[in-house]
Computed example of a mutant assay.
Amino acid sequence: MIKISKIDIREIQIPLAVPFRTALRTVNSVDDIVIIVHTDAGDTGYGEAPPTAVITGETKGSIVCAIRDFIAPAITGMEVGNIEEIMHVLHSCILYNSSAKAAVDMAVYDLYARSLHRPLYQVLGGARQSLETDITISVNPLDVMVQDSLTAIDRGFQILKVKVGKEGMKDVERISRIRQATGPRTAIRVDANQGWNPKEAVRIIARMEDLGVNPELIEQPVPAHDLQGMQYVTAHSCTPILADESVFSPWDAIRLLEMHGADMLNIKLMKSAGIYGALKICSIAQIYGVECMMGCMLESKLAVSAAAHLAAGQKVITKVDLDGPSLCCTDPYKGGPEYEGSQIRMNQTDGIGITCGSVSFKGLS
Results as ranks from 00 to 15, higher is better:
S358V: 03
C328Y: 04
D331N: 15
G353H: 04
I9H: 08
P240A: 04
L142G: 08
P250H: 12
A253Q: 06
D134W: 03
H38N: 10
L116W: 06
E58N: 09
N214A: 14
Q228A: 14
P141Y: 12
K280Y: 01
G126E: 11
L257Y: 07
L150Q: 13
V54I: 12
Y121M: 07
I36N: 03
K60G: 04
R155K: 15
D226M: 09
I254M: 13
Y276L: 00
V290R: 07
A74I: 05
T151N: 15
R255F: 10
D31S: 10
T151V: 11
H236D: 02
C328T: 14
G261E: 08
D40S: 10
H88G: 07
G195V: 07
G125Y: 11
H260P: 00
G57V: 08
S360N: 12
A253L: 06
A41I: 00
R68I: 04
I7Q: 01
I9W: 11
Y288D: 02
T56W: 01
K166G: 00
E299D: 10
H260K: 15
T151A: 13
P50V: 09
A253H: 09
M297W: 03
T151I: 10
P15T: 05
I33S: 00
N97S: 12
R10N: 13
V222D: 04
N140G: 02
N140C: 13
G295N: 01
H91M: 00
V320E: 04
A285P: 02
Q180R: 12
I344N: 09
I188L: 15
G229Y: 09
V80Q: 02
S305P: 08
N28T: 14
I33Q: 03
I135N: 08
G357A: 12
I159A: 11
L257S: 04
T186V: 15
F70I: 00
S138P: 14
I281L: 08
L257I: 10
S176E: 12
P240M: 05
A102T: 08
D244M: 06
I204L: 01
G126C: 10
P221M: 07
D31E: 12
V144H: 10
P51E: 09
Q122F: 00
V247Y: 08
E291W: 07
A206M: 11
S246R: 04
P240E: 05
I159R: 14
G45V: 06
T318C: 03
V202H: 02
P250I: 12
A192G: 00
